[in-house]
Amino acid sequence: MTLSKPKPALSLPDHRQLPESDATFVKNFQEHPQSLLLTSAIRPILDALHPDSHYAIGQDCGIYWRLTEPPERGAEAPDWFYVPNVPPLLNDERRRSYVMWKEIIAPLIAIEFVSGDGSEERDTTSPFANDDSKAGKFWVYEQAIRIPFYAIYEVEKAAVEVYKLVAQNYQKCSPNERGHYPIPPLGVELGIWQGEYINQSLPWLRWWDSEGNLLLIGDERAEQEKQRAERLAAKLRELGIDPDEV
Rank of each mutant, 00 (worst) to 15 (best):
R16C: 08
Q17C: 02
Q17T: 11
L18Q: 13
L18G: 14
L18F: 07
P19Q: 06
E20Q: 14
E20L: 09
D22F: 01
D22C: 02
F25C: 11
K27P: 08
F29E: 11
F29Y: 12
Q30L: 07
E31T: 15
P33Q: 04
P33A: 02
P33R: 05
S35A: 02
L36H: 12
L36Q: 12
L36W: 08
L36N: 07
L37F: 05
L37P: 15
L38N: 04
L38M: 05
T39S: 08
S40G: 11
I42T: 13
I42W: 09
P44Y: 06
P44N: 08
L46H: 09
D47A: 00
D47R: 02
A48N: 12
A48F: 07
H54W: 05
Y55L: 09
Y55T: 14
A56P: 12
A56I: 09
A56S: 10
I57N: 07
I57P: 11
G58A: 01
Q59I: 11
D60M: 04
D60T: 10
D60F: 04
C61H: 15
C61M: 15
G62R: 03
I63P: 10
I63V: 09
Y64P: 15
W65R: 01
R66F: 00
R66V: 03
L67C: 10
T68I: 10
T68P: 11
E69I: 14
E69N: 15
P71A: 01
E72V: 10
R73P: 09
R73V: 13
G74N: 05
E76L: 07
A77M: 06
A77W: 08
P78V: 12
D79G: 08
D79F: 04
W80G: 14
F81W: 13
Y82K: 06
Y82T: 09
Y82W: 06
Y82N: 03
Y82D: 05
P84E: 00
P88M: 02
P88L: 01
L89I: 13
L89N: 13
L90R: 09
L90A: 06
D92T: 13
D92Q: 11
D92Y: 03
D92F: 03
E93A: 03
E93V: 04
R94K: 11
R94C: 06
R95V: 04
R95W: 01
R96T: 15
S97M: 06
S97C: 13
S97W: 05
W101F: 07
W101G: 11
W101P: 13
E103F: 02
E103C: 02
E103Q: 03
I104W: 14
P107Y: 00
I109K: 14
I109T: 15
I109R: 14
V114R: 13
S115I: 03
S115L: 01
G116N: 08
G116V: 08
G118K: 07
E120I: 06
E120D: 07
E121H: 09
E121W: 06
R122Y: 06
R122C: 12
D123I: 00
D123K: 00
T124Q: 06
S126I: 02
S126W: 01
P127Q: 00
P127L: 00
P127I: 00
F128T: 08
